[in-house]
């Protein structure tokens, strides 16, 4: 039986990435925005894995671990900052954070 060609994974990765980008721009809830970023990162992970299959190397798998770790660290920090937003302006709407401008 044939393996799913790598290009399909790549295409999926690209689509996911674009969805993530769109979500980041369109959505106003901070948590949803962050979720979009996570989606983008996972799309990248998928791309890495697809190429790992192509090149038949384990390097990319390792890299995916690194990415996940970093994403986790980012999540921790990010959620703390989001809490700060909630404390200051009682909302999770990113558009409320517009005091700094010009």
């Amino acid at each position: 039986m044939g393996m799913v060609p790598a290009t399909h994974y790549l295409a999926l990765g690209a689509v996911l990435f674009v969805i993530g980008v769109a979500g980041f721009i369109v959505r106003r809830n901070v948590i949803t925005m962050f979720m979009s970023v996570e989606l983008m990162l996972n799309a990248v992970n998928l791309t890495f894995l697809a190429y790992a299959r192509t090149w038949n190397q384990v390097d990319a798998h390792i890299f995916v671990f690194f990415v996940m770790t970093v994403a986790a660290a980012e999540a921790a920090v990010g959620l703390a900052l989001i809490l700060g937003l909630d404390r200051h302006s009682q909302t999770l709407d990113i558009d409320s954070a517009d005091k700094l401008q010009g």
């Binding site: 990435f17 980012e74 990010g78 900052l81 990113i94 954070a97």
Partner: peptide, 20 residues
């Protein structure tokens, strides 16, 4: 807080681009 939040969100956003 706003500064950090913007930095974080946009930073993570562009890091994703770089990773890709």
């Amino acid at each position: 807080n706003e500064s950090a939040l913007k930095y974080f969100l946009l930073g993570a956003f562009s890091t994703a681009f770089m990773l890709y």
